[in-house]
Amino acid sequence: MRQRFEQLVDANGGRLLQLARLMLRSASDAEDIVQDSLIKLWNHLPELEPGSEPAWLTTCTRNACLDRLRAQQRQSGLLRQAWTVDRELDRHIVGDGPAAHATLFEERRRLHAAIRDLPEPGRSLIILRDIQDQDVATVAEALDLTPNQVKVYTFRARRALRKQLEDRRHEQVA
């Protein structure tokens, strides 16, 4: 059981952290949530069917992120997120690289910001399907959707994301 747990931690830890970081602004909140989700996995492992753990972990992490977002909204409103926290996330996304990476840094920052602004379930679908390339069945199970809903909502979320990126680019040019 312990060996299975270690394998699951190693196979899923990184992608869960990516999911949490793309949903939340604070990198430390994301790490806390991933740590909690993995500890919960250990506690629930005897009950879980082998093979169902990735979807279970995704659901657990996503729900915790949504709870955290709701709590943050209640406290201060999404529009009043601290700039320093945003910087902290950016540092985690790209790393403290040299100035030559400034363009890439800025593009990714814009992309991450646009993903975070997508409404649910579009945001989760973009992360799970397009960024992490998880199969339709696993995502459908994790988000409690049908496979066709996963495909259609992903398509619509991608369209919304593309429009958002284009609008921001136009604003910048203007």
Partner: peptide, 25 residues
């Protein structure tokens, strides 16, 4: 856009989190 998104690599789980989780286990 889908291709661009697919290029975003997942980060590594920080060692201190991995250790904490495995120690709990």
């Amino acid at each position: 856009l889908r291709r661009t998104l697919a290029q975003l690599e997942a980060p590594q789980l920080p060692p201190h989190i991995r250790e904490t989780v495995l120690d709990t286990g």
